[in-house]
Simulated assay, not measured.
Amino acid sequence: MRNRRSHQLHRVVRRSSRVGNGPPPAGGVRRLPELDWPRLVELTSVLLASAVAVLSLWFSNRQVSNQLRIARDELSTTKEGQITERYTAAVGQLGEDSVDVRLGGIYALQRNMEDRPRDHPTIANVLAAYIRTHAGAPPKSGDQVPPDVLAALDVIGGRNSAHDRSFVPDLRSTHLPGVELGWDPSSPVAADHKRAQLRRAILRDADLKNADLSGADLRGARLARANLADADLSEADIREATLGRANLRDAYMSDAVLRKADLRFADLRDADLWDTDLRGANLYRARLAGLTLSETHVDGADLRGADLTGAAVATSQILATRIDAETKLPPDIAGDPEVRARIAQAEAEDHGF
């Protein structure tokens, strides 16, 4: 009886497992459902179509990119050719008899400088040579500097000096009286605020009498023996410039910076030096007679042999400079005990004591 009940129970368990879970897979591993081949073919077709579309789009983009590059190269080549043609034509215009044609050539060269910075130094040198050639002699009596020279000078003074590379404005021995390269700080026009770019310019023996160079960048400029009488140099930056034997009589130099400038033997009589910065400047044997120096910064300046006869200057200012027995001072300052001691000390140092 007990065996029969066990056998029936075993049959019930087997039947329940078949109904709930299905027949157990062989080897204890359940079988995966069989693949639906039409569905697989459909999925494969979709994947292949997508891959073809992506490749086609990539190839199309590649072709468009190549075409655009070729178009850009052709456009660049065309533009370069046009600029070269304009440059050649502009240089040719500089030799024409008509001043209007020459002016057109100058402004065409200016456009070339702006369009192709790599040609900037070459064009600037061409214009500087043009100025030297056409302003190498003084203007005829009563005449002003020719308009074409003024235009070339304006282009050089207003150029973007960041593209200069090796270019230095060489305007030596030119005659440019009364030229206007200054700025107007009160003007609402932004272009009028731009400084004339004459840094390291070669202006030896140049005639700049009565010129407007206010605010100009003349740092390191070479102005030896230049005629700057009556010139406006207010607010100009003339640091470390060379002005040996320059004529600066009646020059307006208010607020100008001439730190460490070389002014040996320069003539500054009647110049306006209000708030001018002459600290560290070399004024050896310079002519400063009668000047008002009370508001001038002269700390560290070399005044050996300088003529300060009748100059309005404070004893404290003189004591802050380098002087010697040949420095001509106003009588009240020359007799000051500290000044005399300073001169004696300088003499002793010169003689090696």
Rank of each mutant, 00 (worst) to 15 (best):
E85C: 05
G280H: 00
T276G: 02
S141Q: 13
V41Y: 04
N112Y: 00
P177D: 11
Q67I: 12
L213M: 05
P25W: 05
D232H: 04
G104D: 07
S17L: 14
M1W: 10
V168F: 03
N61T: 10
A346Q: 12
G215I: 07
P146M: 00
H193D: 06
I323H: 02
S60E: 00
G352Q: 00
P147F: 11
L127H: 06
R111W: 03
A261S: 12
I83Q: 09
L57K: 02
F59H: 08
S214Q: 05
L9G: 10
G280W: 06
K328H: 07
K209H: 13
R111H: 08
N21F: 12
V149Q: 07
E42I: 05
A312N: 13
V91M: 12
L68F: 08
D302T: 04
F167E: 12
E349W: 01
A344Q: 08
A90T: 13
I156M: 01
I83F: 02
G158C: 02
A341N: 09
Q82H: 11
R279V: 10
G22V: 03
G215W: 01
H163K: 06
E347A: 09
P138Q: 06
A256M: 00
E114M: 06
E180W: 01
G182Q: 01
F167C: 10
D119M: 07
F265D: 15
V41W: 01
S214Y: 06
D237Q: 12
V99L: 13
S173A: 15
N21S: 08
K79D: 14
A53D: 11
L268F: 03
R111N: 12
R11E: 14
V91Q: 04
A190T: 14
P38W: 04
I318A: 06
R239G: 14
L243M: 15
Q197N: 06
D100T: 11
A49D: 13
R285P: 00
A124L: 12
R2E: 09
S76Q: 14
P139V: 02
L218I: 03
K79L: 15
V179D: 08
V189D: 15
T309Q: 10
G157T: 09
A206V: 14
N21K: 04
S316V: 10
R200I: 09
M253Q: 05
D100M: 08
G28P: 03
D275G: 02
P188T: 12
P121H: 01
W183V: 15
P138W: 02
K328G: 07
D192Q: 08
V145Q: 04
A224N: 03
T242P: 00
R4F: 11
R18Q: 09
E80L: 11
S17R: 15
Q144H: 10
R159L: 07
P139A: 04
D336E: 10
R342M: 12
Q63L: 14
F59M: 12
L228K: 01
A341W: 00
L233I: 07
L47Q: 13
A162M: 02
A289H: 07
D184F: 04
T309N: 13
S56A: 15
D148T: 13
D154N: 13
V145M: 01
P188R: 02
L278V: 13
L109Y: 04
G300L: 05
A251C: 01
G178N: 06
E349S: 07
N61D: 15
E295S: 15
S294D: 14
D205C: 05
Q110W: 09
A301S: 08
A226Y: 00
